[in-house]
Design a protein around this nucleic acid. Structure first.
Length: 410
DNA sequence: TGTCCACTGGAAGGGAGGGCTT
DNA sequence: AAGCCCTCCCTTCCAGTGGACA
């Protein structure tokens, strides 16, 4: 029988890594190295739920990849072990990066509790008040402790004010039989400053900070995962320390360290090599950076893409540093060619700030004295990514556009 | 010392879109 | 079908501002 076209690829794959799943950042290991103290203190607080008392609300702070989410998922699993039928408490996890509206959060809490499909809260149409009061009734009917984890809480507050937190944190006043406790997780230590003082004090009955892992701790994490996922002798001795060092130098992000290790192995596998080396790690780093930015750019709206194109064109005509006014005039030009109605300059200011936050451009407010005060903007993505955007279908009308030569110096 | 530039960024609000209830 | 409600994207209006220059 003839070999299928997949045969040689299948053989090549999975040769180095036994179980790639274990190296995924979403994988929840049996134990979390260097986080036992944190797990313990959260467990102490939550344990009160089993005697029917409401655990204190907790705020957890820490940079990305410091294990906040992993710790909470771990605790969620442990809760299920202790109380499989949810006799005394219900654990609800919401990622506010995904669900970032007041309506969405209330809907999610409500619908995770309601078992009866008929009674589910609809995705839209109800007033916030109605969703809130239905949800509150469902919770009260349960006669249990409900623990709600709000991950990436800062995103929710930034996008839709602190009304949700206000409502949720005072819900206990309206509950007769159940109690709700909140666990907020945030990357941003400062976001609490902007909260209503009442919400602030109710939310931070307990406060914890997860510190970034240092290189040594990242090494431990990588080694414990690698032991389960990769055969001995496949990793060059310096691979794990190098991944750990790169991630530690950045922000001590365990997610990044794991991604580096997994992708290095994939690269080595794909090129048919038997050992993962430092060079593979370096190309993995490169690949991760390219992939994340190109993914972000793909999901931009047409308007944002056009603004970005304007910045790219200005850069091309040797104007590496430009002002909002420069971007806007190029933008108007491009809108004309692309046949889309231009937004106002006020709106473009916001879009430029968004691109800045995404790390696609670098913008800082600068005063030029008599020449006014404005943003100074600089592109900060590599050429390859610009090319990708230029080749997008939505930009095809710009194929024959040649930016006019520079007319004005900054 | 005051002026003045080219914006910044907050506030308020409008309207389209999606989806509910009655 | 009419009437609501929420969200998203956007506009209009405007007070505020850092610093070069007269």
């Amino acid at each position: 029988m003839e070999e299928s076209i997949f045969k040689k690829h299948i053989e090549k794959r999975n040769r180095l890594v036994k179980n790639k799943n274990i190296l995924q950042t979403s994988y929840l290991p049996e134990e979390l190295p260097h986080r036992t103290a944190e797990i313990d203190s959260i467990a102490t607080i939550i344990a009160t739920a089993f005697s029917g008392d409401k655990p204190s609300n907790i705020m957890i702070f820490g940079k990305p990849g410091t294990g906040k989410t992993a710790v909470m998922n771990f605790i969620g699993n442990e809760l299920k072990k202790e109380d499989p039928d949810e006799h005394s408490c219900v654990y609800i996890y919401i990622n506010c990066g995904v669900v970032d509206t007041q309506y969405g959060v209330l809907l999610n809490i409500g619908n995770q509790i309601i078992i009866d499909f008929e009674k589910r809260i609809p995705f839209a149409g109800w007033s916030i008040e109605k969703v809130y009061s239905e949800m509150r009734n469902y919770i009260d009917e349960q006669r249990k402790i409900v623990i709600v984890v709000l991950d990436e809480l800062d995103r929710l507050v930034h996008k839709s004010s602190d009304d949700v937190l206000y409502n949720l944190s005072k819900i206990n006043e309206d509950l007769k039989y159940s109690k709700l406790s909140l666990i907020g997780i945030s990357n941003d230590l400062k976001f609490m400053e902007f909260l209503d003082p009442r919400v602030k004090s109710r939310m931070s009955e307990e406060k914890m900070v997860f510190h970034p892992y240092d290189a040594g701790q990242l090494e431990d994490i990588l080694r414990s995962r690698a032991k389960a996922a990769i055969e001995d002798g496949i990793l060059d001795a310096e691979v794990i320390p190098y991944c750990a060092a790169l991630a530690a130098r950045d922000t001590g992000d365990a997610r990044m360290a794991l991604d580096l290790l997994r992708i290095s192995a994939e690269i080595a596998e794909r090129s048919g090599e038997n050992i993962v080396t430092r060079a593979h790690v370096r190309s993995a780093k490169n690949k991760i950076e390219l992939d994340t930015t190109s993914e972000v750019i793909k999901t931009l709206t047409q308007q944002s893409k056009t603004v970005l194109m304007s910045i790219i064109y200005n850069t091309k005509r040797d104007k590496k540093l430009m002002t909002t006014g420069d971007v806007y005039s190029t933008y108007e030009e491009l809108c004309n060619i692309l046949n889309i109605t231009p937004n106002t300059q006020r709106r473009i200011t916001d879009l430029i700030s968004e691109l800045d936050m995404l790390g696609i451009v670098h913008a800082r407010v600068k005063s030029f004295g008599r020449a006014g005060r404005t943003k100074e903007i600089e592109l900060s993505i590599p050429d390859e990514i610009c090319k990708m955007l230029e080749n997008e279908e939505s930009m095809s009308r710009l194929k024959n556009y040649r930016p006019p030569t520079q007319t004005r110096l900054m």
